[in-house]
Nucleic acid binder design. Structure first.
Length: 789
DNA sequence: AAGGGCGCACTTTTGA
DNA sequence: TCAAAAGTGCGC
């Protein structure tokens, strides 16, 4: 019988002592299904040295039963290595576990030659071999089977290989959001010591369950929560930092209490898997923290900030309770109910956040080929990697291993010195997808790169000026193939988007697909220059930036020759006077001469530059401010400094009043001096970018982190440390305190005045001949003329 | 178990 | 006292 199913999760295992993969998903009747495929042959490729004949090697491997008892077959095939046809042995094994070991032993037995694709896991192997689409539909012939302990509506055994089919439907997925509460008198709760106090789960069917521990024994909470997951049987499980915090905590508590959290659809426990994420078999466990990570507008990644940014229905109901306050709330009866309310509100918001954002991970999964639960946990490089692995397989390219490579830096893009001051009516022009287009146009690719000593005719190659790298014009290189396909896909999506209404579900799906395609497209340049990439070729990235520099330089020359004054430029953009005719002419020229499309990214009614590159603020036609690079948009400045700078920018750009700006700054200074500014607005946040012990200097956030560690808090790489500067003698790092351990009267007001508020305000005001003295309250307000550009 | 790239501004510490 | 180094987070 036929089965059409939507692929939600995939895992590998053994079935009847054979390697197998399980495909978990939903069918068209919205039944939860699992399909077990056992007709799978794990394999790897062996590429003999060019001097060696593959046939005797084949015989040798097949006959050596003591070393290779699990080799099923060795077939001589033709594959490509960087575009060149090569004869390889495809060595098929009866067990996926031996693949990488056999690859090593083969290299040893033969003495020379290379192995390929022995590093691909069986589930990934299966996905790419059959071109399966995570979060997409598939069809195959199946036979109904009964599998013990598997909790689905229908289980099948695969009779044929599944094939991906076009289907616009998105099945009705059940979502469960959860969060876990554990408290400690001092510092972070530790799973080996502090039991779980409560778990709250909310479902998209409108159910909300609160499991509270009646005593120190949390066995029942764990059992009840697991029971609820199994009962509701969600397809998607979400939380916030659930990969790093909630699941690991529950898993460890489960071990301590000997309670099994058999929440997988096959009855298995949640377990840590690829990219440090937690996998729940048969479901997609998703961490909304990773989703927030992909939204740069959300500066401090918290549930509340994410909810506010996305404006989910319950965003207003959410509050924040500091981890440090939870213990005291818990031991008090009314505090406890407040805490439970907080958890419930969080769970509800998490659910809504999942509903609001789930399409993007789904589309990113479908585009890259990474399963839904892995795709957001994977860094950008690994998403590109997975996409390229699929495409390589498709065109018969051997997939190189990711290995440690020497690392070279190379020259990047051009940034222009800005014309300092205020400018009216400015257009920002940029090249659309500059690097991808240049990579395609000049066929920049690992397989088209001509080696230094190689002789080729001049006409057959592109020579990249300055860096002198050469790339064959024909045939199309790997990156050209991949990028063209991505660009084409995006164009198709964009065309359909234009045709359908903005309110339909389909529109939202396509919008997210477009975003996913764009992200992968734009990441290819960086990927090519990343030493950890499978297709790392410095020359490709180096040539792309060289061509980029050439393109923008030529454009600047042309613009200036046309009489268009350049105010500023960075990488692929130039800021010019908004003169429609000339801009139009420049666009036509760029299309013809450079083969690049120039678009007007946006227009500014006014824009202000300091002397610094990459820092400016512009007034958009609708009255909003576009603030770039300045303290306002930096997360490592106090809120008070950012606010004061934003007010200055608003006064100057929108109201065109320096006086008003000065008045605002004075008011902030007054509030500071009067201790009227909340500690939260004085907190400075910095991320720990490496292990504490590796820091060579004493920085404030590092010292505070050490202090917190001593107090029993868990802190490590990637965590953000919030601190406040207090009065006292010594270096700054000696005066930094954890933000929640500071009393208002201890704040070092002078520091905030001199090192936060004034510098942030003066950065802008000094352009208008305002002196620091004028910011002090006792100085009379004078008439300040607007600075001229 | 998990780095896309380089260019730049800016603050604070370090060490001569 | 001061330049260099360390460190962070941004722009594109």
């Amino acid at each position: 019988m036929k089965c059409r199913f939507y692929l939600l999760d995939i895992n590998e295992g053994r079935w009847d002592s054979k390697p197998s993969v399980q495909l978990w998903g939903l069918d068209q009747k919205n039944r939860r299904v699992v399909i077990v495929a056992t007709q799978i042959a794990p394999y790897f490729y062996f590429l003999p040295d060019e001097k060696d004949d593959p046939a005797p090697i084949r015989e040798k491997l097949l006959s050596d039963k003591s070393t290779f008892p699990k080799i099923l077959s060795a077939d001589i095939e033709t594959k490509k290595l960087l575009g060149r046809l090569r004869t390889v042995l495809r060595i098929t094994c009866s067990d996926s576990e031996v693949v990488s070991d056999y690859a090593k032993k083969t290299r040893k037995a033969v003495g020379r030659g290379e192995s390929f694709e022995d590093d691909l896991r069986l589930s990934l192997r299966y996905i790419i071999d059959l071109m399966l689409t995570p979060c997409g539909w598939h069809e195959l012939d199946v036979e109904i089977k009964k599998f013990d302990g598997v909790n689905v509506d229908q289980a099948y055994e695969a009779k044929t290989a599944p094939r991906s089919v076009e289907d616009e439907d998105t099945p009705d997925l059940r979502i469960l959001a959860f969060n876990v509460l554990a408290v400690a008198e001092r510092g972070s709760a530790k799973a080996e010591r502090d039991p779980v106090k409560a778990v709250v789960a909310a479902t998209d069917s409108g159910r909300m369950r609160t499991f509270v521990a009646e005593s120190e024994n949390d066995s029942k909470v764990l059992e009840d929560f697991a029971g609820f997951v199994i009962e509701y049987d969600p397809d998607i499980v979400v939380g916030f930092e659930n990969n790093k915090v909630d699941w690991p905590y529950l898993i460890q508590r489960g071990k301590a209490r000997k309670v099994r959290l058999a929440v997988g659809r096959d009855g298995s426990d949640p377990h840590t898997s690829m990219f440090g994420h937690v996998s729940v078999t048969g479901r997609a466990n998703l961490d909304l923290f990773d989703v927030a990570g992909g939204i740069p507008e959300i500066k401090v990644k918290t549930i509340a900030n994410m909810a506010r940014y996305l404006q989910v229905p319950s965003a207003e109901k959410i509050s924040t309770i500091e981890e440090a306050d939870r213990y005291n709330l818990w031991i008090d009866e009314s505090g406890r109910s407040k805490l439970i309310q907080y958890l419930r509100a969080n769970a509800q918001v998490l659910l809504e956040l999942a509903q609001a954002t789930i399409q993007y991970p789904m589309q990113l999964g479908a585009v890259t080929g990474l399963p839904l639960d892995q795709v957001m946990a994977a860094a950008v490089g690994f998403r590109v990697d997975c996409y390229l692995v699929r495409k390589a397989h498709q065109i018969g390219e051997l997939i190189p291993r990711r290995n440690e490579q020497p690392f070279y830096t190379y020259r990047g893009a051009i940034v222009l010195e800005p014309q300092t001051g205020v400018h009216d009516d400015i257009a920002v022009l940029d090249f659309s997808s500059m690097y991808p287009n240049l990579m395609m146009k000049y066929n920049l690719s690992p397989d088209t790169l001509v080696k230094e000593d190689e002789k080729v005719s001049k006409e057959s190659v592109f020579v990249i000026t300055e860096v002198e790298h050469r790339f064959r014009k024909e045939p199309a290189g790997f990156y050209r193939i991949v990028l063209s396909e991505l660009m084409d896909q995006r164009a198709i999506v964009q065309k359909e988007l234009e045709e359908i209404g903005a309110k339909s579900t389909r529109y939202r799906v396509l919008k997210e697909r477009e975003r996913a395609i764009k992200i992968i497209t734009n990441a290819c340049y960086g990927y090519a220059g990343w030493a950890g990439a499978r297709w790392y070729v410095r020359e490709v990235a180096e040539s792309a930036t060289a061509l980029g520099r050439e393109a923008i330089t030529k454009t600047i020359q042309k613009a200036e020759w046309m009489g268009l004054k350049i105010i500023y430029g960075d990488t692929d953009s130039i800021f010019v006077r908004n003169e429609e005719k000339k801009i139009d002419q420049l666009r036509k020229w760029a299309m013809k001469e450079l083969g690049l499309e120039i678009r007007i990214a946006h227009e500014y009614r006014r824009v202000i530059f300091t002397e610094a590159m990459k820092r400016y603020a512009g007034l958009l036609p609708d009255g909003r401010l576009d603030i770039v690079g300045l303290e306002v948009v930096r997360g490592d400045w106090s809120e008070i400094a950012r606010q004061v700078q934003e007010q200055v920018l608003v006064s100057i750009l929108r109201d065109q009043s320096v006086d008003k700006a000065i008045t605002n700054v004075r008011e902030t200074i007054r509030r500071l001096r009067n201790n009227e500014v909340a500690i939260a607005d004085l907190t400075i946040r910095k991320t720990l970018l490496k292990p504490i012990e590796e820091y060579r200097i004493s920085a404030p956030h590092v010292e505070v982190a050490k202090k917190l560690l001593k107090q029993g808090w868990d802190l490590g790489v990637g965590d953000v440390v919030g601190y406040v500067i207090v009065k006292g003698a010594g270096k700054l790092f000696q005066k930094a305190r954890p933000y929640n351990q500071v009393k208002p009267e201890d704040v070092d007001v002078e520091y905030y005045l001199e090192n936060q508020v004034k510098p942030a305000a003066m950065r802008i005001l000094e352009r208008f001949a305002v002196s620091e003295k004028q910011l002090e309250v006792n100085f009379p307000a004078g008439q300040q003329p607007l600075g001229v550009s």
